[in-house]
C-alpha cells in the first residue's frame, strides 16, 4: 500500500524506547497525521494514535486560559491510566512526540529523556510549514 508517511525517523523513536517500561513512540504533525512510528506499533494503530493525540493536544491547549497561562504556552500533556501512561510533548514547530509506557516507568526519567530527545534531534523532529502555500491568489 502507499506509505504517506516517512518512517525514516522511526529509528530515532525506537532509540527512545530503550528506556525500561516504555511501549510505543509516535511522531505526529499538529494537524494529526502520522510522521513516524516506532517498530512496536503497527502503522494502522499509529495512524489512529496520531489523530487522537492531535485532538487531545488541541483540547489541552484550550484549557490554558483557566490557569492564567498564555494559549501558546502548552508544554506537555500526561495521561495516567490504571496500567500506564501516555506522554505528549512538543517536538519543535508543528510536531508532537507521544510515548506510551507501563505504570512501572520512571516518570521523571522519561520526561527528561523526551526533552533530551526533542532537543538532540532538533531539526530532524520538526515539520515546518510547507513551502509555496503562503499566499492565496
Amino acid at each position: 500500500m502507499t506509505e504517506p508517511t516517512n518512517n525514516r525517523l522511526g529509528w530515532m523513536l525506537d532509540n527512545a524506547l530503550q528506556m525500561p517500561e516504555t511501549l510505543h513512540a509516535i511522531l505526529l504533525s499538529a494537524d494529526g497525521l502520522l510522521m513516524a512510528h516506532s517498530q512496536t506499533i503497527t502503522r494502522d494503530d499509529a495512524d489512529r494514535h496520531a489523530a487522537a493525540m492531535s485532538g487531545l493536544q488541541a483540547l489541552a491547549r484550550s484549557t490554558a486560559e483557566f490557569c492564567g497561562g498564555a494559549i501558546s504556552g502548552w508544554q506537555q500533556t500526561v495521561n495516567e491510566f490504571a496500567g500506564g501512561y501516555v506522554f505528549l510533548v512538543a517536538a519543535g514547530p508543528g510536531a508532537y512526540l507521544a510515548v506510551s509506557a507501563t505504570d512501572r516507568v520512571d516518570m521523571e526519567a522519561v520526561s527528561f529523556r523526551l526533552q533530551e530527545l526533542v532537543q538532540r534531534l532538533g531539526k530532524e523532529l520538526t515539520s515546518p510549514p510547507r513551502q509555496g502555500i503562503g499566499s492565496r491568489a
Binding site: A30, L33, P129, I133
Partner: peptide, 15 residues
Amino acid sequence: SARSSEGIYVRATVR
C-alpha cells in the same frame, strides 16, 4: 496543497 495558515504540517514526501 492545503490552504495556508500556520500549523499545516504535512511532510513534503507525503504526496
